[in-house]
Computed example of a mutant assay.
Amino acid sequence: AAGARHAPLFLRADLTDIAALRSAIDQVRAAHGPITVLLNNAANDTRHSIEETTPESWDAGVAVNLRHQFFAAQAVAPDMRAAGGGSIVNFGSVSWKLKQGGMPVYTTSKSAVQGLTRSLARDLGPHKIRVNTLVPGWVMTERQIKLWVTETSREEIAKGQCIDELLMPDHIASMALFLAADDSAMCTAQDFVVDGGWT
């Protein structure tokens, strides 16, 4: 039906399976038309020690925290070139800036996101495609609260942040919308930190 083109579309895909990722992007394109905004916001910050990290777990961590961002950008870049521009927002993390331990693969991958952003921004800039990194602080998602936020960690956040308020998903969404919109037309190759002044 004519109205079905703009109906909401929710797909599940294993982002570590690049063929599945590309297939999901193709399905989104078929349902909604050319893709001109990409939010690369998928990661796994499960804690892990240096000692327990294996070559296999290292590769798996990089796959879920970094690799898919490049291949998703690669998949949508032709749409953005054809449209005369677009916006790619790669999600990073303040964890590596804070020298946070206990998850070396995650923090390494997240630091690399900012390098990926700058590389893509240079290569895609001539096509008016801007690429930025959105760098969240410790966002109070259900997962974080359930698994890792304790009274002690909350006190550490309060000491670190200039604004002693809980960082919520809406705060991150607002920055993502700014970076997706034409309001950020001349912003590219930048890191936009939303962390209440922690870093």
Rank of each mutant, 00 (worst) to 15 (best):
N132K: 06
N132S: 07
N132Y: 03
N132V: 06
N132R: 10
N132P: 03
T133L: 02
T133E: 03
T133Q: 07
T133V: 06
L134C: 03
L134F: 00
L134W: 02
V135Y: 02
V135H: 03
P136Y: 00
P136K: 01
P136R: 01
P136D: 02
P136H: 01
P136C: 02
G137H: 00
G137N: 03
W138N: 11
W138S: 09
W138D: 08
V139A: 04
V139M: 02
V139N: 02
V139I: 05
V139W: 01
M140W: 01
M140D: 11
M140H: 10
M140Q: 10
M140F: 05
T141E: 00
T141Y: 00
T141D: 03
T141A: 02
T141R: 00
E142N: 03
E142C: 04
E142I: 04
E142P: 00
R143N: 01
R143G: 00
R143E: 03
Q144H: 09
Q144M: 08
Q144I: 10
Q144E: 08
Q144Y: 03
Q144N: 12
I145H: 04
I145S: 10
K146Y: 03
K146I: 02
L147T: 06
L147F: 03
L147A: 09
W148Y: 04
W148V: 05
V149K: 11
V149T: 10
V149E: 05
V149M: 07
T150S: 07
T150Y: 00
T150V: 01
T150I: 00
T150A: 02
E151K: 09
E151H: 05
E151L: 03
E151Q: 07
E151D: 09
E151N: 11
E151P: 12
T152H: 07
T152E: 11
T152C: 05
T152W: 00
T152I: 07
T152G: 06
S153R: 07
S153F: 05
S153V: 08
R154Y: 07
E155M: 06
E155I: 09
E155V: 10
E155W: 02
E155R: 13
E155K: 12
E155C: 08
E155A: 14
E155D: 08
E156M: 11
E156K: 13
E156W: 05
I157A: 10
I157S: 04
A158T: 13
A158F: 08
A158K: 12
K159D: 11
K159Q: 13
K159C: 08
K159V: 10
K159A: 12
G160F: 01
G160S: 06
G160E: 01
Q161V: 15
Q161W: 06
Q161P: 15
Q161K: 14
C162G: 15
I163T: 15
I163Q: 11
I163D: 14
I163G: 15
I163C: 15
I163M: 15
D164A: 15
E165P: 14
E165D: 15
E165Y: 11
E165F: 10
E165C: 14
L166P: 13
L166F: 10
L166M: 14
L166T: 14
L167K: 09
L167Q: 12
L167N: 10
L167W: 03
M168I: 13
M168T: 12
M168G: 10
M168Y: 05
M168C: 08
M168W: 04
P169N: 08
D170Q: 15
D170N: 12
D170L: 13
D170G: 12
